[in-house]
Every structure is written in C-alpha cells, then in structure tokens.
Design a protein around this nucleic acid. Structure first.
Length: 260
DNA sequence: ATGGCACGTCAAACGTGA
C-alpha cells in the first residue's frame, strides 16, 4: 500500500496539478494539507471519479486537511484532541484496511509558529504537546499507525540548504526541534530517515527568491510510523520533480510503501 | 549586483504562509 502526503496550498488552485500527479503516481492513500476550503466546496467528484473515497476537515480560507483513499475510510475523526476551543482544521484520522491488515492514518498540518517568540509560536508548541498526547494514545493500541503531513519542523541542519537562515525561525528553533524529537522518543520512526541518509533532500521550496531554481529547499513534510507500521516499511521517497511543473504547490509529495 | 511569490477573500488591498 502506497501512502502519500502532500500540502497542496489550496485545492481550488491545485486541482489540475493534483490530478496529474494522482494519475501517474497512483497512490492508494493521500493525506492532503492546506486544502483552504470548506467541506461543501471540496471537489469530491473529481477524486471519486478516480476511484478514491474522500473525507475532509476544512474551514473557510485557511488550513484544512483531507484524506483520499482507494480503500474504504473507517472510523473517521476530525480535529486534534486536547483543546475544545481550537477552531483550526489541522488534523484528521481514519482507519484503512488493505489486503494484509489495517493502518490508522493521521493527516496533520502542524502550525507554522512564526513570528517567534509570540502567541503563534506558543500555539505551535501547545499543538505539538497535544499531538504528543494523541500519538501516545495511538501507540498504546499497538496497531500500525502513520502520522503524515506538513510538520513545519526542520529536524536538523542537514534538512535545509541554508541552515543558518532558519536558526531564528519557528521551523528550526531549538524548542521546535526538541518537540519533534519528543515525538520520536515515544518510539516512532521517521520513515524518510529510516531509508535515506545525508543532506540535500527537501519537500518545500519557497515561491520567493527563485528558491526552486537555486535548490534552496527545506525538509518539513514527514511521516512518523509506529513500530508495527515501521516493521512493514518497504520504501519511502519524495516526488521532487512535481515542484518544477506548471502552477505548482510550494510543497511536493512524500510517500511510503507499507506491506499492508 | 540585485530583486524577483502565491493563496483566499472579495472585489482593493490585506492576512497568511515558510
């Protein structure tokens, strides 16, 4: 089963590029971030015509997450637990049952947090604390779990083309990196780093400053796997070339193959 | 050497992002 995540930066602006990629990459499950749409306006039919079931958790104008799946999506839940006053649509879960078992997939759009320090950074760190609690609860099930999406965290300096430019940014501040490591310390495996070592691997290039042409990228989209999912990991990759196409998102897809 | 962006909202700038 191939599971991908992709921050599309607006479904209305990206449906053509997204469908082109779906048609060629043919992932079984896709976790979408930044749909920037309310549920009613999400183009379900476009994906249903391609054999995908669709579940969304959107809001007006910003944020918003969705799951596409060629397998049925069961026990769907929307929103990250731990703060009933949080109105931002950044988390969705569902269970996908493949030919050889089930996996709980969580699609997430972690807050950016800039400017730091400030209330937006406080919200980011609090959100990561809530995610830590949710991840611990999911790990306690001892079932395969995948948490994938836009983490808005550059884990290490090797994950940025120009690390010094990010040292005071919410994506790379020590507290952000520590919170990301705290997730890993629960016993989660970061799929990409289980397969690939070294610098030069990115999932985001800013629209400004010719970042793509200069390969001035950062690696901020990630997939974390429970031990039961990590044991079934057979491959992981980044569809880098998508960034060079017509009307691209500023992110590219990240995917894993799980023997499920 | 330097400056160079793109969403959605709503109909002109503005908030937001990374």
């Amino acid at each position: 089963m191939r599971i991908a995540c992709f921050n599309i930066n607006g479904i209305k602006a990206r449906h053509a590029a997204l469908c082109d990629w779906l048609d060629e990459a043919s992932p079984d499950v896709v976790l979408l971030q930044e749909i920037k749409s309310i549920d009613e306006n999400f183009p379900h039919e476009m994906f249903e015509d391609r054999g995908y079931n669709v579940e969304t958790h959107g809001q007006k104008g910003f944020n918003g997450v969705a799951i596409l799946s060629k397998y049925p999506l069961e026990d769907v839940s929307r929103g990250l637990p731990g703060d009933d006053s949080d109105e931002q649509a950044r988390w969705i879960e569902a269970t996908v049952t493949g030919d050889a078992g089930a996996v709980r997939v969580c699609g997430l759009y972690l807050p950016n947090g800039n400017p730091a320090p400030g209330p937006k950074y406080d919200y980011k760190l609090a959100w990561m604390e809530r995610m830590h609690a949710r991840a611990a609860a999911l790990l306690a099930t001892e079932e395969p779990v995948l948490m994938g999406g836009d983490y808005n965290v550059i884990p290490q300096d090797e994950d940025a083309a120009r690390p010094e430019a990010w040292h005071k940014d919410a994506l790379a501040l020590p507290e952000s990196r520590a919170a990301f490591r705290r997730l890993l310390h629960l016993g989660l495996t970061e799929a990409f780093r289980a397969r690939v070592e070294g610098p030069g691997h990115y999932t985001f290039w800013d629209y400004q400053g010719g970042a793509w042409q200069r390969n001035n990228g950062i690696r901020i989209d990630h997939m974390l796997l429970s031990p039961q999912a990590a044991d079934r990991l057979t491959d992981c990759g980044i569809d880098t070339e998508v960034r060079g196409r017509e009307k691209p998102s500023d992110h590219v897809p990240l995917w894993v193959d799980l023997d499920i």
